[in-house]
Write a protein that binds this DNA or RNA. Structure first.
Length: 266
DNA sequence: TAGTCTGTTAGACA
DNA sequence: CTGTCTAACAGACT
């Protein structure tokens, strides 16, 4: 569940399913998915009751009662967590059994994501989070204007999690379309109005998507291309819903950028 | 078949 | 030092 909105929906689900409850068993179906200094210790720790589940950027942090260790979950490209009656769904990598017929399952077709078990006084001091930029809610137009001195494209900066946390390739496409901004806009071309609009639209976009995707499981574009909620992403050749231009695709910052050449000009 | 993918990182290069 | 590109991770789909 690659971007901020999908991870936030997963956070709300996990917190509702898991808080105050202890897994009776933890099953690691694919050893690559658990990265811990000591697997047995991690599995034992993950059987404690859950205190809460926090999201930071595209990470979930599961906090357990009475222990100074944390499970960091990252979905990368194809990961997701479901609640199921068994622990052996297709692509299941790690499963937590709350009851014999109630399992939380980390599924990941490509197995690029996983669960990191870290043992430290505070998860916030982990290098991953020390290097992470602000959440969109804490991000300010001045932060965007500070990018102006860079020679990079704005897209490259927005995909950089040390600049702002949680934005991915789809969000960039959708937000640029909403702002009527060209996909290859450079940081040097930024102005104060664009910076302010970018911050507000990023927050609005994620809030809208969280509300839209709320539910026990999120379907990714590649799983069902016909039913996704995006205006330009994966819509090459379709008409722009705003101006009847035709959605095009180019590569920017090494990733596909979908955009409307008519209403997203300079 | 070769290209593609809502992510991230390392290394080569300009 | 900055930025861009590619490969790698791995599997399925077109």
């Amino acid at each position: 569940m690659p971007e901020l909105a999908e991870v936030e929906v997963a956070r709300r689900n996990l917190e509702a399913w898991w808080t105050g409850r202890a897994a009776q068993r933890v099953v690691v179906l694919d050893a690559r998915a658990l990265r811990a200094p000591d697997d047995a210790r991690a599995i034992e720790g993950m059987q404690r009751p859950v205190e809460r589940v926090v999201r930071r950027g595209k990470y979930l942090i599961v906090e357990f009662e009475g222990i100074s260790s944390w499970a960091l979950i990252h979905f990368r490209m194809t990961g997701k967590i479901i609640r199921d009656q068994t622990g052996d769904a297709r692509f299941a990598r790690v499963a937590w059994m709350l009851e014999p017929d109630e399992w939380l399952v980390f599924k990941d077709q490509r197995c690029l994501g996983g669960v990191d078990w870290i043992e430290a006084p505070r998860w916030t001091q982990h290098p991953t989070f020390l290097a992470m930029g602000p959440e969109p809610d804490d991000w300010e137009p001045a932060d965007v204007m500070a990018l102006q001195g860079s020679r990079a494209t704005l897209k490259a900066k927005l995909l950089d999690q040390s600049v702002v946390a949680g934005i991915g390739n789809i969000a960039v496409c959708e937000i640029f379309w909403r702002l009527r901004v060209a996909p290859d806009l450079t940081c040097a071309e930024l102005d104060a109005d664009t910076a302010r609009a970018l911050v507000l639209e990023t927050r609005a976009y994620f809030n809208w998507l969280i509300a839209h995707e709320r539910g026990p499981e999120i379907t990714y574009v590649q799983e069902d291309a016909s039913a996704h909620p995006f205006s330009v992403y994966a819509r090459e050749g379709e008409p722009c819903e705003r101006c009847q231009g035709t959605i095009a695709r180019i590569k920017v910052a090494g990733r596909s950028s979908y955009y409307c050449p008519v209403c997203q000009g300079r």
